[in-house]
């Protein structure tokens, strides 16, 4: 059991961009579904209806292109918002099982995360093994029963998540990540005040940042190539 408490007085903004790269068919449903995913932890937002022209342009259902942007206590430019005062409200607390009332606090906590134009489509796995085959990977607890027929995934259906690999040298725009944790220390519940709202430990063993040397609060940038095949068993 692990409890997380995220305390902040400023906005978090979560943005999706869904595009068709090949006969997109279900934008509205996808949006609704995605909203449902995140509404578990966040308040429900309003979706935009598709106009007639957009609906008419829908042709098929081969795949989708997805952009995900998440900001936590920062503006679009990465500047922290409202992260001041005592205690600084920009913080994340973790409470582990059997450690009730003791919070591992990530203080002065803010950042952003963005996946740009990742592509998804249905696919099938190859029909020829790779040379690294290990059928025991698909065995059940009894180490005898195969969880997929013949413990053989060849030709099975899979979700293909991919980026095209034809980007030029020096292009790093598939994933951006900015994070700041100014201090790390434990805080303890004190009467009615939960530990995650206290700042009794003013020290810290270290801080953590993920950024880029281009400038203050510039996000860490990465480039991803290849195909990820995800399948169940």
């Amino acid at each position: 059991m692990l409890n997380l408490k995220n305390v902040s007085v400023v906005a978090r903004v979560l943005t999706f961009v869904l595009r068709s790269f090949s006969r997109l068919s279900v934008v509205l449903i996808l949006c609704a579904s995605s909203g449902g995913v995140f509404s578990a932890g966040m308040s429900t937002g309003k979706m935009q209806p598709l106009d007639d022209a957009s609906m008419a342009a829908i042709e098929g259902r081969s795949g989708i292109q997805l952009t995900l942007r998440l900001r936590n206590n920062v503006s679009v430019s990465g500047t922290p918002i409202g992260c001041s005062g005592t205690p600084n409200p920009c913080r994340l607390g973790l409470e582990f099982a059997d450690r009730s009332g003791i919070w591992l606090m990530l203080k002065d906590y803010y950042g952003s995360f963005s996946i740009n134009d990742i592509r998804l489509e249905g696919s099938t796995l190859p029909v020829v093994n790779t040379g690294y085959q290990d059928s025991t990977r698909f065995l059940a607890n009894d180490l005898t029963t195969c969880l997929i027929p013949g413990c053989d995934p060849r030709g099975r259906q899979a979700l293909n998540i991919f980026y095209p690999g034809n980007k030029g040298a020096g292009v790093y725009n598939d994933l951006t990540f900015f994070a700041n944790v100014g201090r790390v220390a434990l805080e303890f519940d004190n009467g009615s005040i939960p530990g995650y709202q206290r700042d009794a430990a003013t020290g810290s063993v270290l801080g953590f940042r993920a950024a880029d040397s281009a400038g203050l609060n510039s996000p860490n940038r990465a480039r991803i190539e290849g195909n990820a095949y995800v399948f169940g068993y």
Binding site: A158, I224, N227
Partner: peptide, 17 residues
Amino acid sequence: LAIALDDFRYLTAPTSY
């Protein structure tokens, strides 16, 4: 879930840390 990765490469920008 099983995750297979083909023609994979992950490069962080040389100035990102």
